[in-house]
Design a protein around this nucleic acid. Structure first.
Lengths: 187, 187
DNA sequence: GCACCTTGCCTACAGTCCATAGGCGATCGC
DNA sequence: GCGATCGCCTATGGACTGTAGGCAAGGTGC
């Protein structure tokens, strides 16, 4: 067996490239160069560029779900919310390319994956520490997701660059604000 | 004078293309085709592809600032917040490509534009209807922006497609939630 | 131990896109 | 009318995606 490539190798390398140069720079040629291989060779392992991108998204989804899951395990209320937020932010800042890969419409297969279901469930389990009526859970989950993802997106796109103070401070306030909002969920 | 192109024409056409096919489909070739012109001809009016994209962003920023400004004029409190949110959402849904152009890191020139300053100021003026301490304004503005933009981004990327109810309902809840949050801003 | 076949990467090529260089003709100032 | 300018053109090069077909190394059947 030669030191041959596999689909997983290719996707992992593409994810690394995404983190280093941005998701938009993920190109079959660039990945091939990094792997010391000619570009067409990748088509044995990856259907096309879109499939490669979906691969990164699926990888990122799994990693993020795992970290968030670990972070919120055994916690509830503000503790859990903080842990959820911290894990998300750490991932977004630590693996920017992978995180970018989550901010897009992915293929059906990825959307239906177990990791995607996990992510959705975890936001829900944070809510269990609060007394939000069951019928309101969807809205609360969507609100939490919108706020945290939105914050990270704005931060990343530089929207906070031209005003003080540092984003971290606002991030903490935001988490606290979400907490008090969930604590007194408006009917 | 022939019916010659101008920078504004090109950008406007590119923006139309973005709305029809997605911001990612904005290509010099495609724009040239739409204008009935050869691709290299566009370089007389636009420095390069990145400048064209920045042009769309600047255009969108101006349009959005104008609509939001009109919507919140003369309103305050929940009224103003609702109007702000409605104008933003209407723009995002009505001009999806232009809206997408705002979700990215734009050139310095765009960031420093008057429209960009306007947008920031408008979020601030919505806050005047609430009793958020001045020192907290930045955080509140960032929170509002994060939540609304984040919601629209998630909606657009299909995150809400696989759960009921329709996004509009959650959108309304979100706006109300933001209102009650601002009304009782946590110290 | 030999022929065979699978497999993994290769070269060659077509199509699209960005971007630059240089040409040509129509229009405008005079 | 005459020349200069200006707007769009053709030609070209380099990068990227994706397809077709080749070649050789490794494993397989006999």
């Amino acid at each position: 067996m030669r030191p041959s490539l596999t689909a997983a190798t290719v996707v992992a390398d593409a994810a690394a490239l995404a983190d280093e140069a941005g998701f938009g720079m993920v190109t079959l040629s660039a990945v091939a160069r990094r792997l010391g291989v000619q570009a067409p060779s990748l088509y044995s392992h990856v259907r096309d560029l879109e499939a490669l991108r979906d691969g990164i998204t699926a990888l990122a989804l799994g990693e993020l779900a795992e970290r968030v899951g670990g972070a919120i395990a055994g916690r509830s209320g503000l503790e859990a919310l903080r842990a959820y937020a911290a894990a998300t932010r750490a991932y977004a800042l630590g693996s920017p390319g992978r995180w970018q890969s989550l901010q897009r419409r992915a293929g059906e297969e990825v959307v239906r994956s177990e990791a995607a279901r996990n992510m959705a469930a975890q936001a829900g389990s944070v809510l269990r520490g609060y007394e939000v009526p069951p019928g309101e859970h969807v809205h609360a989950v969507r609100l939490i997701g919108s706020t945290l993802n939105g914050f990270l997106a704005l931060e990343r796109s530089g929207s906070f660059d031209h005003s003080a103070p540092a984003p971290e401070e606002s991030w903490d306030r935001t988490v606290v604000a979400l907490d008090s909002l969930l604590r007194a969920w408006p009917a």
